[in-house]
């Protein structure tokens, strides 16, 4: 599928999706709608995004992105979905661990470093740090002892 086709497909699902053209096609959607979109583009035989090659979080100070880099082994197209989470106090998003198994570990990492909670995750726990630690990849994270700024 070309980028234009993907765009129209996504707009059918999420009408207010914002697109950015860069290296890949970026689609910014609201966090609450991301799960159904991701599920449908995974299951749709025309898109069949079967390979979640990168899942990460980005903190833009006012909001978070959970970024899904998707590609399809069959159709050879790539798509980036950015799920926007505006709630900083208690950020939540639906887990995609049931769609791509790799998300299970990646979501643990995002939870550990950004504090974004994933609903329906099979076993949400701190992966690297202990339970009392803050969320170091947030931009407002401060640690007077351990961080040496260059």
């Amino acid at each position: 599928m070309t980028n234009e086709d993907l765009k129209s497909l996504i707009t059918q699902h999420v009408s207010e999706a914002v697109f950015e053209e860069g290296q890949f096609l970026n689609a910014i959607v609201d966090g609450s709608k991301a799960f159904s979109l991701l599920k449908s583009i995974r299951e749709n035989p025309e898109t069949e995004f079967d390979y979640l090659f990168c899942q990460s979080g980005v903190d833009w100070k006012e909001f978070f992105y959970v970024v899904y880099h998707l590609s399809s082994k069959k159709h050879k197209h790539t798509l980036v979905i950015k799920a926007k989470i505006t709630d900083r106090v208690n950020p939540r998003i639906e887990s995609v661990a049931g769609i791509w198994k790799t998300a299970e570990m990646n979501e643990l990492e995002i939870f550990d470093l950004f504090g974004i909670k994933f609903n329906n995750h099979p076993n949400l726990r701190r992966l690297f740090l202990d339970d009392t630690w803050g969320f170091p990849l947030r931009k407002d994270y401060t640690d007077d002892v351990n961080i040496v700024s260059l």
Binding site: L113, L127, L129, P136, I147
Partner: peptide, 23 residues
């Protein structure tokens, strides 16, 4: 089998944010 990580976590991603593109 349940992996527990973090024994050698240095948060290279966070450190990178504090260093320049050369470093």
């Amino acid at each position: 089998v349940e992996p527990h990580l973090g024994y050698i976590h240095r948060s290279i991603e966070k450190m990178s944010e504090a260093s320049t593109y050369r470093n």
